[in-house]
Amino acid sequence: MMHLMFQTLAAAALLGLAGQAGAQATQAQEQGQQAGYRTLTVPGDTPIQVALFYPTAAPARALPMGPWQPVVAPGAPAAQAPLKGLVLISHGTGGSEVGHHNLATRLARDGYLVAALRHPGDNWQDRSMVTSGHYFGERPRQVSRVLDALLASPDWGSRIPAGRIGAVGHSAGGYTVLALAGAQAEPQRAAMHCRTVQDDPMFCSLGKLPTTGPGTKAPVALAAAIAPDAQRVSVPDPRIRAVVALAPMAVVFTSESLAAVSVPVRVIVAERDAVLVGKYHGGHVVTHLPRAQASTASGAGHFAFMAQPSMPLPSDAGDAAANPAGFDRVAYQPQLESDVAEFFEQQWR
């Protein structure tokens, strides 16, 4: 009975967004250039699944993918016009490669190749990397691996314009892209932060997973799982020339390394973020990187920067489908897309 009820609720939610997806498809058709969609697997000890969005002349349609309905042309041939650039997208902890599909399809229609990866060990199916001891270094390295693969790809490598590679990240993805831009993390700062403040409770409880080592039974939180003597993490990728950090997890960054970041940075924080309190995270970046372009999404919660799911998505950080009272995520998304697109346009002029 409960299974049937869930199926009924999910179907209703999908129908509720069907009109929205249909309107997006119609709008995309009217704009001429569409978003194609393919998948890529980057090989290795931990293979990386990647969703590729790119410009195409083929007609797009709403393509159901669980709680998401990206408007894309699956498997379509890429447009022959030169690409404007490459944008890599890093999702938040426990996320998905299609969780930012609205932004990805907008950038693809604008002429970009967009590569959104599913972070191995930190996605909706597997969060084992959170307590691995390698979290802060491995996440950015995974993005660099995807970039390596695309630049070596016979389909895309020669088409990616030199010097026009950007990255967008949300939440833990915001941490990831700032690390790629040159910001350095001292992982123990997370534990120190959570011992000294009382008003960032969601961050300090994130990553609670049952440990699997001998004799361990209690759940471990992200901040507490970091060894006190963990060394500074430095994983810059100089090929990435501009980054957008959306509600970034940033308390772990050193002030001096933020100040030394030289690539253009855009930071957008959510006014009502209960997951990563702005003054400790996005605000920390803006304070120590005054060159960054910064703004606040009025009335928004932490998940405002993800596409609106068609059903509840509960997580340690709350329901990713929920919004603060009075905030319309669907209405906000076009503004977010334009802000990000305009930022990259400014860099590539």
Rank of each mutant, 00 (worst) to 15 (best):
D110R: 15
G213N: 13
A181I: 03
D148E: 15
G182Y: 09
Q49V: 11
E30T: 11
A321D: 07
A149Y: 01
S158L: 08
A297L: 08
L180D: 04
A51W: 00
A62F: 10
F53T: 01
I165S: 06
L113P: 00
F253N: 04
P228S: 13
G36A: 08
P82L: 14
V98I: 11
P187E: 01
E271Q: 14
A292E: 09
V243M: 11
P59D: 07
L178D: 07
V263A: 12
V143E: 02
G299Q: 06
A183S: 11
P312L: 15
M192L: 14
F343Y: 10
T41K: 07
N323G: 00
F253W: 08
A274Q: 09
Q7G: 10
P264Y: 13
F6W: 15
Q125F: 10
A28G: 08
A242F: 12
R195W: 06
L180T: 02
R109K: 15
A245R: 06
S90L: 04
A270F: 04
T56Q: 03
D126G: 07
P201F: 02
R127H: 02
V251W: 04
G32Y: 09
S96L: 02
A79L: 11
H100I: 00
R189V: 11
L107C: 07
P59K: 13
W156E: 04
A28P: 06
R189G: 07
F136E: 00
H281P: 07
P219A: 03
G299V: 05
L289P: 01
L15M: 13
C194V: 09
P64T: 06
V277P: 01
D200I: 06
D199F: 01
G282V: 10
Q198G: 04
Q335H: 12
A172W: 10
A225H: 09
L336N: 03
P43A: 06
P59F: 11
